[in-house]
């Protein structure tokens, strides 16, 4: 399981609610009363605390402690054989002024731009179609669109490398019928990134479709019936009923797809190794490559770059949440 920034965000919200004082406008009470209230509060909610304790402990061990320790380690030039040298925030400076780091963030953003809108639109259309189908056909379609999700990204990459080959690849064979090509898709810096985006879309759209479909099934059928009685057509029903009521689902999918896109790693690793001329060097692949040299510098640089990427991704998530205000769905 991965800890998405979104879930940390929810945790932060939950934590802030939990920490809010109960009576803000009441005057300060004597200490005994406060401690008395606190113990009453603890006693009243002890079952809840016991229930959340395992999760808090696990998050502490596997998320918060490693994260804090990573920040601590990033202030050293780490060696696994000699004493680490304290360098303060030096490596943050190195990463932030490295044009290759920012270039990789740009590549990640471009990959998101190529994949996420297509995934969202295609998944929405397919989900809308499946919703209108009968139970048996819908079941078949749901299984079919889910298949890419269970195929390993590594296998997909290898298959697409064969499909894209300039000598005898399936894609060049197909476009040959209309007199085009052959193109060396993965060797041209201008089309390599769009080329690896296609398997990226193929891999992600199935699960996105199913989640959208679950959101659509949650919308009461009576809304649509009422709209139909009023004479609303499909586009109007989609625009005024489906999309507004699925706002939270769409927001969730948008954030997770964006973060997953920025973190894309296997496709460029296997299909292009980040090339040609770094045109598919996504942030995670860049960090992975920095980890190569057997020097303390390489270790500390990749660690710091990974931590900074964490902030970049957190920033992107916050930006999306800010731009699309997350509201509670009305009634649904």
């Amino acid at each position: 399981m991965t800890m998405s920034p979104q879930s940390t965000n929810r945790l932060a919200t939950a934590a802030s609610i939990a920490l809010e004082p109960e009576d803000e406008d009441s005057a300060p009470k004597p200490r005994r009363n406060v401690s008395g209230r606190l113990s009453t509060h603890v006693m009243d909610n002890r079952t809840a605390y016991v229930m959340i304790a395992p999760m808090v402990v696990l998050l502490g061990i596997f998320v918060w402690w490693p994260l804090l320790y990573s920040f601590y380690l990033s202030t050293f030039e780490i060696s696994f054989y000699e004493d680490p040298v304290f360098v303060g925030l030096q490596f943050y400076g190195y990463v932030l002024e490295d044009p290759d780091f920012w270039h990789s963030i740009g590549i990640g953003a471009l990959y998101v731009l190529y994949t996420v809108p297509v995934i969202m639109i295609v998944a929405f259309l397919v989900a809308s179609f499946i919703r209108t189908c009968g139970i048996k056909l819908a079941g078949l379609l749901k299984t079919t669109v889910y298949v890419p999700t269970v195929v390993s990204a590594v296998i997909t990459s290898v298959v697409f490398v064969f499909m894209y080959r300039a000598d005898g690849g399936l894609v060049n064979w197909l476009i040959g019928f209309v007199g085009l090509g052959p193109f060396a898709y993965l060797s041209d810096p201008n089309i390599a990134l769009p080329a690896i985006s296609v398997p990226g879309i193929w891999l992600a759209f199935g699960i996105t479709t199913l989640i959208m479909l679950a959101g659509m099934y949650d919308i009461p059928q009576s809304y649509y019936e009422a709209a139909q009685l009023e004479g609303a057509n499909f586009v109007q029903r989609t625009w005024f009923i489906t999309i507004p009521l699925m706002k939270n689902v769409l927001l969730y999918l948008l954030v997770t797809a964006t973060i997953a896109g920025m973190q894309q790693f296997e496709l460029p690793l296997i299909m292009t190794q980040g090339g040609p001329t770094n045109s598919t060097m996504t942030p995670n692949l860049f960090i992975f490559n920095q980890f190569k040299d057997p020097t303390p510098y390489a270790t500390s640089f990749s660690l710091t770059a990974a931590l900074l990427l964490f902030f970049v991704l957190g920033g992107v998530s916050m930006l999306i949440f800010r731009l699309i205000r997350s509201d509670k769905a009305i009634d649904a």
Binding site: F80, Y81, F288, F291, K292, D293, P294
Partner: peptide, 14 residues
């Protein structure tokens, strides 16, 4: 190789 080796060194399992 390089990444696996470094991960093993970090874990004290070189």
């Amino acid at each position: 190789w390089d990444q696996k080796l470094k991960a093993a060194q970090a874990a004290g399992k070189a």
